[in-house]
């Protein structure tokens, strides 16, 4: 039997380990700068607004809305071939940060810009849980 096709899997590193550890506990976390108070995503070792190093991690409510999206009919990686078509979206979280994710748990045809969504968690590997979104 053919080996199950794998998908790209994040390899946590210095900047991102806390994020992936939290995701494993089904928490979506983000960084906020203690100097300039602005949120940022993706996680970095410094603030991308003021270059400060004093960053705190905060829990997100996981609620947001779709800023833009696409329905992909092509698998960029063999691991996605069984899921076509699938939705990639840019989601604005209510805490003021923005991230890429998939919209799952609905017909791709109903996804719209500004649609309210909420985070769900998908086990990608035994070690990695991937935050995704469903219609709220």
């Amino acid at each position: 039997m053919a080996e199950k096709r794998s998908k790209p899997v994040p390899r946590p590193y210095q900047d991102t380990k806390a994020y992936w550890d939290a995701a494993k506990e089904k928490r979506l976390i983000f960084q906020r700068c203690l100097d300039c108070s602005k949120p940022q995503f993706y996680p970095r070792g410094v603030c991308s607004h003021c270059l400060g190093s004093r960053l705190e991690w905060l829990d997100s409510s996981g609620r947001g809305k779709v800023h833009t999206f696409t329905v992909s009919y092509r698998a960029p990686h063999p691991g996605f071939a069984d899921e076509l078509p699938f939705v990639i979206a840019i989601v604005d979280l209510e805490e003021g940060f923005r991230m890429m994710s998939n919209i799952v748990g609905c017909d791709p045809g109903i996804v719209r810009i500004d649609m309210p969504v909420k985070v769900v968690f998908e086990q990608l590997t035994p070690d990695i849980v991937l935050p995704k979104f469903s219609p709220a």
């Binding site: 995503f41 698998a75 960029p76 990686h77 996605f80």
Partner: peptide, 10 residues
């Protein structure tokens, strides 16, 4: 890119 590739971006 670990914040994009796992979502199937191209």
């Amino acid at each position: 890119m670990q914040f994009e590739d796992p979502y199937g971006i191209s």
